[in-house]
């Protein structure tokens, strides 16, 4: 790994961590556990496209540590839920990018898949933590919510690539 690449990946961790933390501070007007904008997924998807899924997974895990530390909820239930959601959605988006991207979906579709998997993973962890399968009644509301957030994230990634100077990455 050369130094330039290391610096850029570090920068992505910092950006994603801050996005994650800021998102924790912004209360959404929906009383549903686990609902968030998923802005940090912009970084995850961008890194999958630029450097591949291994780096994206490492960045996602590091940003959960950094983001929950900054938001003051590290090692609580929110941490476990974010961790599961980040890992699951990064892997889902990586699979999506590899096998479905060119043929079927644009980045927006991949990002919606990521948001969906993120919510399902978080809700599964929530169900285990409170030992109640009734938590899954929130799933339709979360699915409905993951469509707009996934689209916003996907559009964000698309514009990021449009504005990205060609010579900065490598």
């Amino acid at each position: 790994m050369n130094i330039r690449r290391m610096i850029i990946l570090g920068l992505f961790v910092a950006i994603a961590g801050v996005l994650h933390a800021v998102e924790c501070w912004v209360p959404l007007p929906l009383p549903i556990p686990g609902v968030k904008l998923g802005l940090a997924n912009i970084v995850a998807l961008a890194v999958i496209e630029l450097y591949g899924w291994r780096d994206a997974l490492v960045i996602s895990i590091l940003r959960v540590f950094l983001g929950t530390l900054l938001a003051g909820v590290i090692f609580g239930p929110a941490f476990i839920m974010s961790f599961a959601g980040a890992v699951a959605s990064t892997l889902a988006m990586a699979v999506g990018c590899k096998y479905l991207r060119s043929k079927l979906f644009s980045l927006v579709g991949i990002s919606v898949i990521g948001a969906l998997v993120h919510n399902i993973a978080q809700l599964s962890i929530a169900a285990v933590l409170v030992v109640s399968s009734g938590v899954f009644w929130f799933l339709p509301y979360l699915v409905l919510f993951s469509v707009p957030t996934g689209v916003v994230t996907g559009v964000g990634v698309t514009y990021f690539f449009r504005k990205l100077p060609q010579n900065i990455i490598l």
Binding site: F105, S106, V108, G109, V112, I113, V147, V155, T158, Y159
Partner: peptide, 15 residues
């Protein structure tokens, strides 16, 4: 910025 057919089907289906 354009959505593919699969994107639209996915979004519509989920809704």
């Amino acid at each position: 910025m354009r959505l593919t057919l699969a994107d639209k089907v996915l979004i519509g289906g989920l809704i």
